[in-house]
Nucleic acid binder design. Structure first.
Ligand SMILES: NC(=O)c1ccc[n+]([C@@H]2O[C@H](COP(=O)([O-])OP(=O)(O)OC[C@H]3O[C@@H](n4cnc5c(N)ncnc54)[C@H](O)[C@@H]3O)[C@@H](O)[C@H]2O)c1
Ligand SMILES: NC(=O)c1ccc[n+]([C@@H]2O[C@H](COP(=O)([O-])OP(=O)(O)OC[C@H]3O[C@@H](n4cnc5c(N)ncnc54)[C@H](O)[C@@H]3O)[C@@H](O)[C@H]2O)c1
Lengths: 221, 221
DNA sequence: ATATAATTGTGAACTAAGTCACGACTTATT
DNA sequence: AATAAGTCGTGACTTAGTTCACAATTATAT
């Protein structure tokens, strides 16, 4: 823990993306890849990719590129893909159910281990092999799970966050519109889908049109 | 419609968030608000909020703060909250269905007007009053909708994006893991939920705990 | 009236992220 | 062996975003 303290956050956020694409390349049987090729695939400037990788040392070879297998192995370790991360989901509604149906194991080695809801009709069911418990069982059931996905109504978000933190949760992926307050050592990522949509609309209307003379990038082969 | 071209993207992305909270304040009957109060609510530094607002001119009064009603009215116009933005959703699966059930009108004045799927079992149904058409009807049905939400398998994303662009779509909210290539004048926002989750896990393990002597909050996005 | 407290708007400083461009090295070709 | 082409890693630079800190202004208390 904490060995590489100096990696920029922007870089850290791109690592899972790189990992997935390197994984794809490996499955395609590709042995080497250049920052330029990777750039075309993930739509990140090739210099940025080289810079990102360089924070971890010299992963590539000049004039050659990167060895796919080596890169994959390296990121697998760096992203802790060996041990499965267990996650709990709070709120088995529309969004929560969608997440429960999704297989985060495949590429990410993350497993939603259990879900909680306050609605008695949902409690006791299984959704894609994930058991749904009553929210009052949180204390007893949560175990040492450190990450929670929050898909409950916004009004419930703050008290639930407090509760989760008391129970030992250290990371929360918050899909509610509420901006929750937590102790400093707890990490919260907000994903506000309505804001994302509205921001897209705003950009469309106010940041228009680079004229379309210029050609497009080449998709990955 | 493109008056203020120089607003930083980071600022633009916060506008919908500000708008929602100002709206809340107004509903609570609050008449004035300071950047400090707003800061506590949305978890954005108060100087950043003042800076953001200042790009639009002097919206507040020194020693007083901001008039809630005025601010609300201003952002309502700035974010084009008068005219409803119509959106199409492509792929009525787990995630798509969750979105169809959500009311983006309430705070955002955005309406998912129609949905498309290739699965005959879904075609012809209504999900939360939104009609689901066959994807082959896209040509005929789409009309002048300019924004699409993409919730189809990753393998379909690129061809579908091409198709949408040909049909006049200018903004795509892409939930698939595929990074799509589009002409320069088309705006794509990627929301990659698996990456978000994995990034959260990575941060938890590698960016530990600011100690008590350090006062700053952990960044939240 | 006057003093005190609150609060904006912004120049300046700072921090973070992204890009350029080139030397060093690898591989392929002739 | 020599040459050409490809590619990394990184110092220097550029751009974007955030925060500090304070004069100017407004509101409130005495
Ligand atoms: N669905 C979307 O597309 C969408 C879009 C933007 C934002 N959101 C936000 O995501 C969150 C979830 O949205 P949704 O559409 O899934 O809502 P939903 O109403 O379908 O689901 C909420 C679930 O949480 C459960 N719940 C309520 N209080 C609880 C509590 N105290 N403890 C445990 N469970 C509780 C409910 O029983 C329900 O099953 C909301 O905050 C919503 O604003 C959703
Ligand atoms: N569900 C999640 O939690 C989650 C998490 C991360 C990423 N994603 C991504 O989001 C996307 C959607 O996920 P999902 O879980 O809703 O998948 P899903 O399989 O439930 O839904 C996909 C839908 O798209 C339809 N479809 C397939 N090809 C189509 C085409 N050519 N035209 C129109 N419709 C077509 C299918 O019939 C289906 O209804 C996927 O790319 C997935 O990788 C989902």
């Amino acid at each position: 823990m904490m060995e590489q303290n100096k990696i920029p956050q922007a870089t850290a956020k791109r690592l899972p993306l790189y990992y997935r694409f390197i994984n794809n390349l490996n499955h395609q049987g590709k042995k080497r890849v250049s920052s330029k090729e990777l750039s075309d695939a993930v739509k990140v400037d090739s210099a940025t990719i080289r810079r990102d990788f360089s924070y971890f040392g010299a992963l590539g070879k000049k004039g050659y590129g990167y060895n796919v297998e080596y890169l994959l192995e390296f990121f697998r370790k760096t992203l802790d893909q060996d041990e499965t991360t267990e996650v709990a989901l709070i709120g088995v509604g529309n969004l929560g159910t969608a997440f429960l149906h999704y297989n985060f194991m495949k590429n990410n080695n993350i497993a939603i281990k259990m879900a909680f809801d306050s609605n008695p009709e949902k409690v006791g069911t299984m959704v894609s092999d994930v058991p749904v418990y009553h929210i009052e069982e949180l204390e007893d059931r949560l175990g040492d799970i450190k990450v929670a996905i929050l898909t409950i109504p916004g009004s419930e978000a703050q008290p639930m966050a407090d509760h989760l933190v008391n129970r030992g949760v250290e990371g929360i992926l918050n899909f509610t519109p509420a901006r929750i307050t937590v102790p400093k050592h707890i990490r919260v990522h907000h994903i506000d889908l309505a804001v994302e949509l509205q921001a897209l609309v705003y950009f469309l209307k106010h940041y228009p049109l680079i004229t379309e003379d210029e050609e497009e990038e080449v998709p990955m082969d």
